[in-house]
């Protein structure tokens, strides 16, 4: 191809045309902070790990009183032990993946490692949502299996609300809560993937189609 040969010839001549940065100029750059994708992913992932844990810690103790009344304390205690074991597992995986990111790897491998790191934290968020859903199913099942106790706890003043109505109110409020969480997460991930990882995903797909 003529044009490409011409370009190659020109390419070799251009060395002299570039600005020569002085020692001081390079020194200044070296001391600046990186704003690479990996750094942002690290910050966001850490924030997510903290966010989900803080949410658990922020729940006031009074919230648990109701569970005590409903005889659900044991179930919750077990679920907390499992939960923290899983959290530690996720944190370990995240650090393992993050530490494996190496800028000197081939482009393909580097992108794979970044995506893997990001995916670990995605799974963590999925885990939190799924665990919440499962736990609320268990709790609901146990709650509603003893209607008398349920009425006692949620309707202590003995207002004239039927069991069906109370059931519906509880169910609807839980569904609304879930929908809001999922919507919020969807928007959030659109932002993360839209802004931060769009370019990386596109380039990764391009290489993947070659294989």
């Amino acid at each position: 191809m003529d044009e490409l040969d011409l370009l190659k010839k020109d390419w070799k001549k251009q060395d002299a045309d570039y600005p020569k940065l002085s020692y001081e100029e390079i020194y200044t750059i070296v001391h600046k902070k990186s704003s690479s994708v990996v750094k942002w992913i690290f910050i966001i992932c850490i924030a997510e790990l903290i966010f989900w844990n803080v949410i658990n810690l922020l729940i006031p103790d009074s919230y648990f009183e109701i569970y005590e009344k409903l005889h659900l304390k044991t179930v919750l205690s077990i679920s907390y032990v499992i939960h923290y074991a899983v959290v530690i597992g996720f944190i370990y995986l995240f650090y393992k993946n993050y530490n494996s990111i190496c800028v000197i790897d081939s482009t393909n491998l580097l992108m794979k490692k970044i995506i893997r790191t990001r995916r670990t934290v995605n799974y963590y968020v999925y885990y939190n949502i799924i665990a919440t859903i499962i736990l609320s199913f268990i709790i609901n099942f146990m709650m509603f299996s003893d209607e008398e106790l349920l009425m006692q706890v949620f309707n202590p003043k003995n207002l004239d609300i039927g069991g069906d109505k109370l059931f519906n109110i509880l169910l609807i409020s839980q569904v609304i809560g879930l929908v809001i969480i999922i919507l919020f997460l969807w928007i959030y991930y659109r932002i993360i993937y839209g802004i931060l990882l769009k370019k990386l995903n596109k380039n990764y797909k391009e290489l993947a189609t070659l294989e």
């Binding site: 690479s36 994708v37 990996v38 942002w40 800028v103 482009t107 580097l110 992108m111 370019k199």
Partner: peptide, 8 residues
């Protein structure tokens, strides 16, 4: 790698 992957 920086141009393709890390740099936004």
């Amino acid at each position: 790698n920086t141009a393709i992957t890390l740099y936004r």
